[in-house]
Amino acid sequence: MNPKRADRIATVVFWSLSMTTLAALLVIIVRILSKGLLKALNPFFVFGKPEALKAGGGVLPMVVSTLYITVLTVVIAFPIALATAIYLAEYTRRESRLTRVIRLCIDTLASLPSIVFGLFGMSLFVIFLGWGYSLVAGAATLAVLSLPVIARSAEESIRSVPDTYREASYSLGASKWTTIRQVVLPSAFPGVITGTILAIGRIIGESAAVIYTAGLFVRKIPLNPLRTGAPLSAYIWYAQAEARIPDFRSVVDGGAALLLIIVLLVNFVARKLASYYREKKIAG
């Protein structure tokens, strides 16, 4: 074939492939929002109690469960992830066999299917440790799941701090730990926070890992973390698969729209924060 003609065909192909991707995204968002936006913005739905058999139930306990479990997860995972990131970025300039093992484990953990985490959390936290279906069990499972995600992004932002910062600090007589605490971490902070917020988006949307660790359905708002919860994403699945409410379609429509809005908002905040700090860095 004539190279010019091949080039023209290729151009059309690449344009249509990427436009297909964008179109798919658009179709999903429009479809979910057009079906459920009104329900998702209805205060009786968002702040209402769920029903087990009747129509007209809300999702307040599920929204609270999601928030609760997210906070618990971050409280457990963030310190460990940050420590891992600091260790890998600052203390292992030369890769030893040990750090290679740690990296392999992080990669493995990051690529495991979430249902495997669900099985693991169920057999360790729910059954072996006897926590039952509870918010803590769900949060512990999600913590193991999100640990590698947070650690990777934190390590990347710590590594992107220029070495000149460290050298300046050392030349002032600061020790390594002081340098990390007072110089490296503050400048890596925006990246670390952005990565963590993105992980939060994933935690909120996660369902396979929580349905058999945290629970699927609750009537009341869970206050005790040792009690069963029902994260919104898990409840959406439960409502469409097993619930006996007559209006499950509209509940799932509303729940899916609400979940989508929350997750998009969280991701939006993360991106905005990242670009805000980037501009500030360039300006200042």
């Binding site: 990427s18 964008l22 995204l25 968002i29 994933r202 949307g205 369902s207 991701n267 991106r271």
Partner: peptide, 30 residues
Amino acid sequence: DEYAPVWLKGLVFRGVEIIAGIPSVVIGWF
């Protein structure tokens, strides 16, 4: 990387990132 005009690059990339963020139950319901 190669074909997109500058204004479209960011848009497509951001779009792909948004797809990554959509929870699987939402895609399943769709």
